[in-house]
Simulated scan of single mutants.
Amino acid sequence: MQLKDKNKKRLILIDLDGTTLKDDHLTINPITKSALQDAIKNGHTVCICTGRSLKDTLHIYNELELDSLLVTLDGGHISDPIHRNFKRIVLPISEEVTKGILKHPILKGKIENIIVEYYHTNMIQNGKDNFFIADANAEPPIQGDILNDWIGPCSNIIVKLNTNLNFFNIVDTLNNEFGDAVKVKSNLIYGIENIGEKPILIITNKFVNKGFAAEMVAQYYNKNIKDVIAFGDQMNDFEMIETVGHGIALTSGNPKLKEIAWGITDISNEDGGLGDTLNKLLK
């Protein structure tokens, strides 16, 4: 992998879990942290582009000493935490659609847990089973009865099922009935080949994806999308890696993502693959 113009100031988009963060979902390999901070000092712009919610991301944003736009919820929320010059973009799911999905007969008796997220808050049905983000440094979601306690729109719904029976029929049925409003995906997009005994549904606004977010952020910073560098590891990064000119997949990432990537890191996220590759590209 080589850049044609190493003097050009780039926009660098970084996924978090499995990419910037080590496998503990907590720490950044020193090679990666140093490379990102060096890139910023040299005039490049680094932006986080993650599936996490804002409150689960801000401590990492602050650790990296960023002051750029912040993309969370896979592009469902784009914000400007420091300067507040960028008008917040939120792509919501209405309360009616959210509760219509959760009350759908095909899910009756099959839901083990739910997380509902909006740009500034999130709620979990059973707080003892925080099944999606294993980051002890993140602020935990509040606990509540989603159907009764959650009021208003959300940007993301994560449903843990208690059975895998008729799983693909569940996904297809919800997409058929609510597909004008949302996309119903599964944990299979995160590189899990076996759906397991308790699969996960991931539901977003139908327009949400990291490719859309990449174009929005590039426009804001007046960067040609063909010059943008992006790092990701799983299939929620697919549109971002495909959209930018230099989409790089972690060697430890999803094989299908690596098939469409411009480049692949030599080493894993655990060993600092993002930082190692960025240093090679920019120096």
Rank of each mutant, 00 (worst) to 15 (best):
Q2E: 13
I14A: 14
G18F: 08
G18N: 11
T19F: 06
D24F: 07
H25F: 13
L26Y: 03
L36T: 06
D38F: 12
N42W: 05
C47W: 07
C47K: 08
G51E: 05
D56Q: 15
T57C: 14
H59W: 15
D67S: 15
L70S: 11
S79F: 01
K87W: 02
I89A: 09
P105K: 09
I106K: 14
E112V: 03
N113K: 14
F131D: 04
I133Q: 13
A134P: 00
D135S: 02
E139N: 13
P140D: 04
P141L: 11
I142P: 02
I146T: 02
N148W: 05
K160V: 07
F178W: 11
A181I: 00
V182L: 13
V184W: 00
S186P: 09
I200D: 00
I200T: 07
K210M: 15
F212G: 02
A218R: 10
Y221L: 07
N224R: 11
I225C: 14
I225H: 13
D227K: 01
A230D: 05
D233W: 05
M235L: 14
E242Y: 14
T243G: 08
P255G: 04
K256V: 04
L257D: 04
G275C: 10
L278V: 12
L281K: 11
L281D: 08
